[in-house]
């Protein structure tokens, strides 16, 4: 049924002799990934550094990251799932249809060669970016790569992890999991956590017009979300915490300026491999931190009549 096989980045540095980057452009989006973690550093078991590693880049276009790779595999847009599924079959010596494979932009020979190399690796690592996880197929595409990595462990050591993007989004995952059990999209409206991606995910909620107020911190959805979602945000009371007055601030009813994470606000942030790191601010902000403001709002809410969820013994409801 699949798996998630991961490690800390130091394991990649020290051990990985075969690395695949899929649908990401670290050279431009995670500039130090190659030099600090994955490709060039000398590792305990990879004493030659870059020379000791084979790097493969899989993407739909030749980004600057391709120059850093030994092998660049260019596939047609939205064919990631087909290619990954084919690889899952090939590692198990299953037959695939060469003509159908060719429609992905890669040949069966290229994929077979990749599989042979993967199996010969001592320690393989795969990283994927939004080029995989945000294109047609979405979480199933990342699922395909995660499964491929897990299944590779029947032959040799393999790990896989997402190249998480902005700031501390990994921390949000971690915190939500231990406080609510679920990683994102958690609905607490019945007094306990409920989870159903697609139902309680922000864009879906907003596009359906389910929310009647919004509190935004550490993000600027007004600049990034689909237009119908933005329009709904503008139509309801929206509250924004941000160091700057953002697109979202402009459509909100309340904006509060806060200190900048890691620059003037202390605390903890998680790296993409879920390693927590302390923040050491170099500046003292004239603004309060997000943490302080959220706590103050929470206390202000607590001064109002308490919302006390009741145990649901009745079926059928509007959520």
């Amino acid at each position: 049924m699949g798996g998630k096989v991961s490690c800390t980045l130091g394991e990649v540095t020290n051990r990985a002799d075969f690395i695949i980057f899929w649908g990401g452009n670290p050279a431009e989006c995670h500039p130090r990934h190659f030099t600090k973690y994955s490709l060039t550093p000398k590792g305990r078991f990879v004493p030659d550094g870059r020379k000791g590693r084979t790097a493969v880049l899989v993407d739909i276009r030749e980004t600057p990251s391709a120059k850093a790779a030994d092998i660049f595999l260019q596939l047609r847009p939205s064919k990631d799932f087909e290619v990954l599924t084919t690889l899952r079959a090939l590692i198990k010596d299953q037959r695939v249809d060469p003509a159908a494979v060719a429609e992905t932009g890669l040949t069966l020979e290229q994929l077979q060669d990749l599989v042979d190399r993967m199996k010969k690796a001592r320690f393989g690592a795969m990283f994927f970016g939004m080029g995989l996880s945000m294109t047609r197929g979405k979480h199933m595409n990342s699922g395909a790569l995660l499964n491929l990595a897990a299944e590779m462990n029947a032959f040799t050591k393999f790990v896989c992890m997402p190249m998480r993007g902005h700031g501390n989004v990994t921390g949000a995952d971690v915190v939500l999991r231990y406080t609510t059990g679920y990683p994102f999209g958690v609905n607490l409206s019945r007094g306990y956590p409920r989870y159903n991606p697609g139902e309680f995910s922000t864009v879906d909620l907003l596009v359906r017009g389910d929310n009647d107020a919004a509190f935004i911190l550490g993000a600027d959805p007004g600049a990034t979300m689909p237009q119908p979602a933005i329009e709904h945000l503008a139509s309801i009371p929206t509250i924004v915490l941000d160091p700057k007055v953002t697109h979202t601030s402009r459509l909100s009813r309340v904006h509060i300026t806060t200190a900048v994470t890691g620059v003037s606000a202390p605390g903890t942030a998680y790296r993409m491999d879920e390693i927590p790191l302390p923040l050491a601010p170099a500046l003292r902000s004239p603004y309060p931190t997000d943490e302080e403001v959220v706590r103050r709002i929470r206390r202000a809410v607590a001064r109002r009549p308490a919302w006390q969820p009741v145990d649901e013994n009745v079926r059928s409801a509007i959520a």
Partner: peptide, 25 residues
Amino acid sequence: AAAEYLHAANMPLVYGLSNTTCEAQ
């Protein structure tokens, strides 16, 4: 004002949590 809006809502959304600390999260 924030507290009032959030308290009054039937289905408020708390979203983002990216460029911020775990403590704030």
